[in-house]
Each structure stands twice: as C-alpha cells, then as structure tokens.
Design a protein around this nucleic acid. Structure first.
Length: 279
DNA sequence: GTTGAGCGTT
C-alpha cells in the first residue's frame, strides 16, 4: 500500500512532520508505516528520492496528525534500529517550500526574510548521544543540489552508483547515453582523446601549398638536410639563437606555406605554434 | 551490488 506521497503534499499545515534520518536506501514508506503508526495517526510518509534516478535519499518524512503522537514517536523511535541502521527521528524544521517549522508544525508560511537559505542552524540538541559532529556535507549534498539546480544534463561523472531499485543506471545506459548524445556533434576528427591536437586554436591542415611538389613538409625538411621541423619549434627554448630564424616575419600566419630561413633553406611551416616562438 | 550527511512530493 504505497499510497504515500503519490498524490502530492497533503494538508501539511495541519500535521506534524517528523524527519527520519539514516534510513536504509531500500527502506520504503511501507516499511516505516507500521513502526510509526503504532504511536499515532500517520497521515503521510514521504521519502524524498533522487529525481533523476529515483533512488531514495536516505531519509523520510513522517507526518502525524497530532503533535503529542509525533512527540511520542520521536521519543520511542529515535535511535531505533530499522533495517540494520539506527535511525534518527526528529521534528522537521523546514517545510517543502522552506517554511519554518516548529515542532513539526508550520509556524511561518514562507521565510521571506531569508533570501534563499532557510537552514539557519542544524541540530541544536538532537546531537546528544549519537556522536553527531559537524562533518563535511559532501556527497549527498552535492548530489541533491545538482539534481535540484543544475538540471539533468550536466556531467554526472561520479554518479554511477545506484542501487538495485534502479538497474537502468547501473551500467551501460544512464549517463553514457547523455554524454554520447552531447558529444556526437563535435566528435569530428580527433578520434583519439589521448592525444590532443598540438594547435587547438587553429587547424594544422595546410591550407595552401602544403606540398606543391607532392612532398610532405617533413620529407622536404629532411631532404634539405637542415632545419628539421623540431628545430623550427624550439618549444620553450627560444634562446637557441644559433638556430636559423626565418626572414619572413609573417610566418605565424602561414601555416602550410613555405618560408625561407636565414641560412637560405626553405622549409614548410607545419605547425603554427612552432613558428610563433621563433619570432 | 556499492553511498551515509541531511530537511520535502503531483
């Protein structure tokens, strides 16, 4: 009977919400209902789920009709081991729309004073004997925040862990299809991601006269016996003053063209980066 | 199959 949470938020203004933390990712509302219903009238149980994967986020909201019953549930169920984990039951402090809640009941429709952060402080005395210290809100916070604000077409690079409830995202499918779709348009020529193009800002393809005589620039240089393409590109060694420098001062715009060096040799410009350093 | 601080849905 998982009728909880299927018809949107019910009349929460009249109920008392409890926050149940530390439940198992497999725990469902049906699992929690018998426990909490023993102490009062449970009107709703809601387990927030990852909107994208559908996974449980590991906590739940249990709404009681009466405050005393909710209080009783807190007293009795806080620290109870459910499904192998010690759950934490406390009154919710914030509502679905960031309403401030006191003792599980909404006392302020909307916190307009606070801009966007209704969380003023966390756990006043709820961290009694549980060893709750301020850790670094890391994982699930990012997971949640990204799902909420970043949308679903971000790069979920480390969001591949899911449980048995969502096998669709465990392997193969899932984020892989997103990436493929987004990259398919710009996957033109560099099929090997391990090696990048030496000149990302400009195409290395000789535009004109790359081999006027059917020779490749490399062969041409070697045949010339003199400055090889490597010497043309000192790459971090501009102090190589003994190396011949081209007379042509516009070589940085002549990729694929032929330039004449001071020693009289002609070389083909094969890389824009290489020639720019020589200037 | 896995995670583990936290506050919310047709």
């Amino acid at each position: 009977m998982s009728h909880f949470g299927r018809s949107g938020p019910p009349d929460i203004t009249d109920t008392y919400s409890l926050l149940v933390l530390n439940i198992t990712f497999r725990t469902t509302a049906d699992d929690l209902f018998p426990l909490f219903d023993k102490y009062g009238k449970v009107v709703d149980i809601f387990i927030p789920k990852d909107r994208r994967t559908g996974d449980s986020r590991g906590f739940a909201f249990v709404r009681y009709k009466y405050a005393d019953e909710a209080q009783k549930a807190v007293d009795r169920l806080d620290g109870r081991v459910v499904d192998g984990r010690e759950i934490t039951v406390q009154f919710a402090k914030y509502g679905p729309n960031a309403e401030r809640i006191h003792k599980g009941r909404i006392i302020e429709p909307v916190p307009r004073s606070r801009s966007r952060s209704p969380r003023r402080r966390h756990r006043d005395d709820y961290s009694r004997d549980r060893g709750y210290r301020r850790r670094s809100r890391s994982r699930s916070y990012d997971r949640y925040e990204r799902d909420r604000y970043r949308g679903k077409d971000r790069d979920y690079r480390r969001r591949s862990r899911s449980r048995s409830a969502s096998p669709d995202y465990s392997k193969g499918r899932g984020r892989g299809c997103y990436d493929d779709d987004r990259r398919s348009s710009s996957r033109s020529l560099s099929a090997s991601p391990a090696r990048r193009s030496p000149s990302p800002r400009r195409s290395l393809t000789p535009r004109k006269a790359s081999s006027p005589r059917g020779e490749s620039p490399y062969r041409r240089s070697r045949d010339g016996g003199s400055p090889s393409p490597r010497s043309v590109s000192p790459r971090g060694h501009p102090a190589d003053s003994r190396s011949p420098s081209p007379r042509n001062s516009d070589v940085d715009q002549c990729s694929g063209e032929r330039v004449t060096w001071a020693n009289g040799h002609d070389v083909d410009v094969v890389a824009v980066d290489a020639v720019c350093i020589c200037r």
